[in-house]
Amino acid sequence: MNPVIKIILQRLALGLLTLFIVSIVIFAAVNMLPGDFAEAILGQGATPEAVAAIRRDLGLDQDPVTRYLQWLAGALQGDLGNSFAQANFASFVGDDSGVRTTVAQQIAPRFANTMFLAGVTAAIAVPFAVTLGVLAALYRNSVFDKVANISTLTSISSPEFFLAYVLILFLAVLNPLLPSLSNIYADMGFAERLQKTLLPALTLTLVVTAHMMRMTRAAIINLLASPYIEMARLKGIKPMRVIVHHALPNALAPIINVIALNLAYLITGVVVVEVVFVYPGIGQLFVDSVKIRDIPVVQACCLIFAAAYILLNLTADILSILSNPRLRHPK
């Protein structure tokens, strides 16, 4: 078998295994809760009958391993259980006609919104960061490089909400160019949706661009001492061409890696930014559910975030393997 395919299959298997173990960790963490969900929902004055009814209703009377397997099987089929906050306990009230909000129903539209936000951010940030990184490597130690260095360090170090509020201050309050609240509906046109997403996307761009740009610069500068770069320079090739044609393809693996890592970072950065802009994404749902201790939603969001994180890291791994010609063309 081609060694590349073998490595990729190994990585995929490893990723799946990690996801499986992570799901166990998440489930176990939630099961460390004192008492159980039933008591949490009903409060302290609950009668034993009511607690027993809800326990039966939620399947809490089974042992943890069975429950874990049921949860996992459901999650694999897209069924993440019912939300506590919006459950009406049909069997407990005695009316079985009530419609329940499942976690999947709650998450699906918000997941799409978050993906949209992350997509817009990536579309702005990735080209911007790589261009800036190449320029900074080209004009290293110049005024431009120093200004870029200081400003990226500053934006990496700032908490997301600081950048968000500064942007709101200048682009929404003082100069009303963009809305500071991202109220997004399902049946919204693309242009309007983009306009409402732009401010959170810009905030996230500021956060991730800095890191990607610095890594691009470092990856290229690392290569500049190599003999083939020396050779290209001695041939009399222009500095821009040396970097774009000779250094950049060889720096691709670390750059792809850092881009994927930053997209993975977006997954967590999105939580704070969504809360600031009241963007109806999965991050906001997660924080709200944490506050009201809506365990099934917290569990599901956590699993989704972890899956996205593992997937992006896996992609980074595989892409950097693919961008390595020594692996693609074995002797």
Binding site: T18, V22, A29, V30, I267, T268, V271, F286, A306, Y309
Partner: peptide, 14 residues
């Protein structure tokens, strides 16, 4: 393998 902010939020819930 779990994003740290997400995991800490989960554990803080608990």
């Amino acid at each position: 393998a779990i994003p740290s902010l997400i995991f800490s939020l989960l554990l803080i819930t608990v």
